[in-house]
Amino acid sequence: MSSDTVNPLISAQHLVKRFGSFVAVGGIDVEVQRGESFGFLGPNGAGKSSTMRMIGCVSPVTEGRLRIFGLDPATDGKQIRARIGVVPQADQLDEQLTVEDNMVLYGRYFDIPRKECRRRTNELLEFVQLSDRAKSKIEPLSGGMKRRVTIARSLINEPELLLLDEPTTGLDPQARHVLWDRLYRLKQRGVTLVLTTHYMDEAEQLCDRLVVMDQGKIVAMGSPQDLIHQYSPREVLELRYSAGANEARAGELDGIGHRREVLPDRVLIYADDGEAALAEVHARGSHPESALVRRSSLEDVFLRLTGRSLAD
């Protein structure tokens, strides 16, 4: 079978990454199909980046089996890297060079002729809406623009698979939405996206399917909607009592909703009908400083699965 037609695009079985005695990835099984948008969701230190670096064929697999395009990173790293695009967690741009130079030089690493690099650069800068910055140095650009340059640069070899490690960490909301929009367009063009994030909204926006990782293990897998349905009732009632009183007051709420989580700053009550749960809270004479009913999100899934909040 030719490697072009092999499905899945990525397949990992009992994938392990150890640094000395520290286990970064503790035996995970993952399959990503061509054209899919797949996410690794988890807090810092969950093993997401280590997994990505193994898939990117820069960090050797400690144990287990990994195939990308049906090829083995241990022997075919070069060929695999030629067909993937990498958006690393920190932009690795040459700040003193222009946007255009950064793009062209990166293309040269793939042995793409200069002229062709320039042609693709024009096209890609248009795609990330930075054509007017082609001659600008990197240094004065905003964080969101630098990220877009990094994404454009990662596309210079027309990759079949794009790896994005926390693509929007540190960006303001507007810049994040611009990026999500561009990534969505890439997906529509048939590029397979694999990304890590610790933002629930990002995972919900971008991922067809995702795994939730915690401490090097996969704790759940599915589409965002499936995961929410499976692990969390439809609605969440968020109650805030006066500072420090959340723990003490939680007892007043026994028996309301399916489940309760007491966080330092708020109490979460999981219920099929959030408004009804709130009415019950009021009926019991409990008066929180604020109350909010919202839909369950992946954040709640994570809390349920790990007992910990994702937000640091």
Partner: peptide
Amino acid sequence: MRGFHAQAATPLS
């Protein structure tokens, strides 16, 4: 600047 890491993510060994 991490330019070597950027290079290593490409076919360059």
